[in-house]
């Protein structure tokens, strides 16, 4: 078992939030997707991120206010899980409800094991 990080991009939920039924139905999908992972013991952690934030750049430590990139490129949240292979992790990611949005994307990355 290796650990993988999913980075979620796009999928702005603010239009959905206007209808509480549509919003709750969408959040139900998150619950059943993540619930499935938790039942298999594969879920490590997951959190959505606020859209505002700051970025610190380079040796001069220049602080800029967000958004620092277009909304659809911005990381909107993450999930860490365990999977037996990279392909397995990609399969898991395919079930992510962020993909219900036209511009939703999941980047799948394996955690680097440090060898020193």
């Amino acid at each position: 078992m290796k650990e993988y990080l999913f980075l979620f991009r796009g999928g702005d939920g603010s239009t959905l939030q206007k209808s509480s039924e549509a919003w709750q139905a969408h959040m139900q999908k998150w619950m059943s997707w993540m619930g499935g992972l938790a039942e298999q013991g594969s879920l490590v952690s997951a959190q959505p991120l606020n859209t505002d934030g700051k970025q610190i750049m380079g040796t001069k430590k220049l602080v800029t206010d967000g958004p620092f990139m277009e909304g659809k490129e911005m990381v909107g949240g993450y999930l860490m899980c365990k999977a037996s292979s990279y392909d397995d992790a990609v399969e898991i990611a395919k079930g992510c409800p962020i993909l219900d949005f036209e511009d939703g994307k999941v980047e799948v990355r394996q955690i680097q094991e440090m060898t020193m």
């Binding site: 959040m27 619950m31 039942e39 959190q47 959505p48």
Partner: peptide
Amino acid sequence: DSERALLKSEYTLTTVMDT
């Protein structure tokens, strides 16, 4: 346990509580 694991994530906290 798997039900309470979902309480730790903001994606699922309030939905699980509603359930």
